[in-house]
Simulated assay, not measured.
Amino acid sequence: MLIFRVIFLAIAVCLGASQALAEVRNVRVVGNGAPTRITIWTDTAQDPRAYMVEGAAGRSVVLPLRGPASERSGTGMGGVPEWAVTGSELRFNLDRPLMVTRVLTLPPTGTATEHRVIIDLDTVSEARFASVARRDMRQLARALTARNEAGQRQEVAALKPGVAQKKYVIVVDAGHGGKDPGALAVTGKKEKDITLAAALQLKELLEADPRYEVRLTRETDTFIELEDRVTLARNWGANLFISLHADAAGRDSVSGASVYTISARGESRIDKEASKNDWEIPLEDGTAQSITGILKDLVKRETKTHSAEFAELLLPELQQAGPVLRDTHKNAGFYVLLAPDVPAVLLELGFLTNRDDANRLQSRSGRQKSMAAVKRGIDRFFIQQEKLLADRSG
């Protein structure tokens, strides 16, 4: 599976004994603390994990770098007064408790040569910061210990990338179905029928491309439990999971598509649901028990990052197909986003309470335009994953 090849290559680089020099080319902090966004430009790909730290020196957010970097520092804003690169870490000092809500890693696009790391922060209580910081500092210590001892660990060397699948497995989930009709359109159409029609059209588009194998969680008007939808995707070895829905609002003027990825609250449910449904993250046989937890945590973090990356690549394509909400990329704890090792998004195609959206989504041509946009987003996502794999293995 391509995603896991990328993940394990990232782990090997993170924990490997030899480290290439990293160059932090630029840092920008924007916002007022609620929220604040940090953007980092580097010459090499970085890992999607930032740690909240609290100690005698105060509060900070630490981004471990993939190797030593030239020392530099600068000023920020929005609760982040200053930052500094020291050794193999980039540290952002905080003047108030701020929570890391999302970390994105983006490869170069167009003619750009820099990789980007985006860290989103938001206001949180002192007690909440202290609680998360205690957990993060333990995880950071474990990760650094594993990195320092990696040269002596043959178990990590055993994590060799396998042979990529000939096709990417895309699982398309038509929301609702059977006894669950979903939202009702102003035109009288049911959400479950619109999502199924869209899923079948997306399947047709994707299967015309030899790169993809497509599985549908339902192909008829049947009801599928939420946990079964996720289980099916994992059993099929999904590289990407897309759940299709149509929204409803209290005002008929609200229109446009939106994309959801996992929220922090949703993340807190993953381990419980994984244990309940036997969603075990596969690791190489012989992996030492002492690093199993670290590797599984990295897989979950990388999965969350890939989900967000796909959402960001999908949005500009959706904008070409029809209206989108202003706050287009949202976070939520929807059950279908809880797989620990399958990148997943929930796509709201529009608002059935808006007549224009409803008419667009109940017409084959309107759905086809949206599904063509989704297909282009999928293409962009896997092209970037292939490039990332080539960069890391080269």
Rank of each mutant, 00 (worst) to 15 (best):
R211H: 06
K387G: 10
L90D: 03
F241L: 14
F382I: 01
G55S: 13
D271C: 04
D43T: 10
M99T: 00
G58V: 02
A143E: 07
M371F: 09
E207W: 00
D47R: 06
D47A: 12
V132T: 15
A246D: 05
G67W: 01
L144S: 09
D173N: 11
A311L: 02
G250M: 08
A69G: 11
R355V: 10
A133F: 08
D391G: 01
P343H: 02
I11M: 03
L184T: 15
A20G: 14
A34E: 11
G33V: 01
S268C: 12
R218C: 05
Q19R: 14
V61D: 02
V345D: 03
E273P: 02
I291C: 04
Q320H: 15
A183H: 07
L295C: 12
T303M: 11
T123F: 00
R376D: 08
K179I: 13
L90W: 04
T105M: 06
G55I: 04
Q139S: 03
A308I: 06
P161W: 06
K160C: 11
S307C: 13
L338Y: 00
C14M: 06
H329L: 15
V259P: 02
V29Y: 02
D95R: 05
M52K: 10
I262V: 15
R392D: 13
A249M: 09
K387A: 14
P108N: 13
A10F: 04
R138D: 12
G250V: 14
A130L: 06
T305N: 09
E386H: 07
G110S: 00
H245I: 12
P97Q: 11
L240I: 11
Q154E: 09
D228E: 14
E348K: 06
P107Y: 12
E225T: 04
V27N: 07
Q320E: 15
G175S: 09
A332L: 08
A233R: 05
I281A: 09
G33E: 01
W236F: 15
R376G: 05
G16S: 01
M1T: 02
L361T: 05
V299E: 00
P181M: 10
R135A: 11
I119Y: 01
G151T: 07
L140P: 02
L94G: 00
T101R: 07
V13N: 11
H329R: 09
L226A: 14
V53L: 03
P97N: 11
V53S: 05
L388F: 08
L15P: 00
D136K: 10
G162F: 00
K190F: 02
V27A: 07
I270Y: 05
A274H: 04
K387Q: 14
G366H: 01
A208S: 08
K160I: 15
L244M: 08
A358N: 04
G182F: 09
V214T: 12
V117S: 00
N239Q: 10
A344F: 08
W41I: 01
A133D: 02
A248Y: 06
T39C: 01
V171A: 12
D271F: 00
G256F: 00
K190I: 02
R364A: 15
R360F: 02
E89V: 14
T220D: 09
M371K: 02
G74A: 08
A208N: 09
A208C: 07
A197K: 05
K189Q: 07
A69V: 10
